[in-house]
Simulated assay, not measured.
Amino acid sequence: MNTTFSVSHDEQRLRRVLKFLIRRRLKWARFVGVALVVLGAAALAVESLPVPTSGFFIVTGVLFALLLEPCSVAQSMRAQNLATREGYVMTLEETHVAVNAHSYSRRFSWSILDQVVDTPDAWYPMFGKMQAQAVYKDLLTEEQRAEFAAFLARRRSAQPIA
C-alpha cells in the first residue's frame, strides 16, 4: 500500500477531530450530569433538600451533560497552533503513516497503533489515548478506501488477542 493524498485545511474537519477526541475523554461528564439532574429532581420531589440546593444540582447536571463538550471543543479550537490551519500531504504506507506540511512533518509507525475507530466520514488511527490521525474517506478513491480497509483488516487479524 502506498497512498498519497492532499488534505486542505477545513475548520469543520478540525472541529470534528477535536470533538472525536474530547468526546472520548468526557464520557464520564454526561453520566455525572444525568446523575446530578436525577438527584436534584428526586430531592425536589421528596423535598429532602432545600430548593436552591436541588436547583444547583439540576443546573450543574445540565451544564455537565450538555455544555461541557461543546465548550471544551471551542476552547481547543482557540488553543490550536497556527500550524494546524495549513493543509498537508498524507502518505499511507505498509510501515507507517506520514504527514507533511510546510511547517511540520510527523511520522507514525503502524507498530505503535493502539486501535482504529471507523466512522462514516473517516478512520481515526489512534496512537495513544489522545493522538489520532484522521484519514478522511472522501479524499480517497474507491480503490484506495478498499485497499486501506483491507490493510486495517490484515493488521487487526495479525494482532494478538489480549
Rank of each mutant, 00 (worst) to 15 (best):
L14M: 03
V73H: 01
H96T: 10
T91K: 06
N2H: 13
A65F: 10
A83Y: 05
L139P: 06
S109L: 03
K19F: 02
C71M: 15
F127D: 01
P120R: 08
L113P: 06
T84M: 09
E143S: 14
A42G: 13
I22G: 04
L140W: 02
T60Q: 13
Q133P: 00
Q75Y: 15
R16P: 01
D121M: 11
A150E: 11
Y136V: 08
R16E: 10
A132M: 02
L152P: 06
D10G: 03
I58A: 10
V46R: 14
F56H: 01
R23K: 09
R156D: 12
L82P: 14
F148S: 08
D114W: 09
L152S: 04
T84G: 09
H9R: 07
I112L: 03
Y88K: 08
L92V: 11
F127I: 04
A79H: 10
A42T: 13
E69I: 15
L92A: 01
R156M: 05
Q75F: 14
L36D: 11
P125D: 05
Y88E: 09
V17D: 01
D10K: 02
A149L: 01
E147F: 00
P70S: 07
D138H: 10
R85W: 04
R156L: 06
G33D: 02
Y124S: 05
S157K: 15
R23Q: 12
M90T: 06
L113W: 02
R23M: 03
S109C: 01
L82V: 14
Q133G: 04
L18K: 02
Y136Q: 07
A149P: 00
Q133T: 12
T141P: 02
V117C: 00
N2F: 04
A150D: 11
R85N: 09
N100A: 15
A146G: 11
A153S: 15
T95A: 12
N100H: 13
P52I: 03
I161T: 15
R154A: 14
L49D: 07
Q12N: 10
A65W: 07
L36F: 15
R25S: 14
R25T: 12
I58Q: 08
V89R: 09
P160D: 14
T141W: 05
R16N: 09
V7L: 00
V37R: 01
R106T: 05
P160I: 13
V32F: 04
L63T: 11
E142S: 11
A101K: 01
S105Q: 12
H102G: 10
I161E: 14
W110N: 04
R155G: 00
Q115Y: 12
I161A: 15
R23E: 06
P160A: 15
E147K: 10
F148I: 15
D138Y: 02
Y104H: 08
V62S: 09
S76H: 03
N81G: 12
E143F: 05
T141A: 02
L66A: 15
V46Y: 09
